[in-house]
Design a protein around this nucleic acid. Structure first.
Lengths: 125, 125
DNA sequence: GGAATTAGTCACTTTGATGTGCCTTTGTTA
DNA sequence: TAACAAAGGCACATCAAAGTGACTAATTCC
């Protein structure tokens, strides 16, 4: 233990970090957003999410399924069919994520400007 | 271009992902949360955030400064003194992040339960 | 008969993020 | 006289995340 003043919000921060880690990877948000429009099968997700590899889509879906954010329904036909859909928990996550998205849209120019200024300033050092 | 049905929300998703990448790393949230309580100097942040190395704190602060989320005020004394504080943009980010934090707290047991079930189910396959 | 489809898995490589330990600078303190 | 303080910088090591390409099954379509 290195401090005491921040102990009360440290665990909360860790929790937030966990969610952000869960949802902050390269593909989870796009999967959740796509499934927010309705159930999709694997190949539909793959086609809909630009640049995702089969492997990464599989891993992402497994992770989301593990955390109970999506369901996976297998139809053992030939060729096989697997449908993914958001659970209620998954849907509820859509809301705070959208809030963050709104912030991103609202502040994109400000952030971009700050970035340009910073880069220009540090370039000539 | 691989699809058309998701074109309209793809850029939005990318934006959200950028914010999540910005804020979803290991330390940014804790820095922002700590600075949410008021300005802090480097060593205070380092002591307050458990486990962060000097290097990672520096990198995190540089990144946040670059995006205009925090300010860095140098007082050239001996020993040097550097104060960090949230900008208005940084403060505004606190809100949606808190929303996500609330979701995390509200759903922690649900997610943990789902995870246990999933792990138990996949263990014996 | 050969190609395409579906939902993956497997082995391998590459990239990026993170961590560790040592160095500096000048003044104060033990 | 030697250590310590603050706020890093720098070189190096490590490790997890992400990407790549090949392979599978059975069936239908051409």
């Amino acid at each position: 233990m290195t401090n005491s003043s921040t102990v009360h919000h440290t665990s909360e921060c860790v929790r937030v970090s966990e969610v952000l880690a869960r949802v902050g990877d390269k593909w989870s948000i796009q999967v959740i957003a796509t499934l927010g429009e309705g159930p999709r099968r694997f190949s539909e997700l793959k086609r809909g999410i630009d640049g995702v590899s089969q492997r990464m889509l599989t891993l992402t879906l497994r992770g989301l399924e593990r955390d109970g954010l999506i369901t996976r329904k297998v139809t053992p036909s030939i060729p096989p069919r697997v449908d993914y859909a958001l659970t209620d928990v998954g849907k509820s996550l859509l809301e705070p994520v959208k809030a963050l998205g709104d912030w991103a849209i609202a502040n994109r120019t400000t952030v971009d400007a700050a970035r340009s200024i910073y880069d220009a300033r540090t370039d000539d050092i």
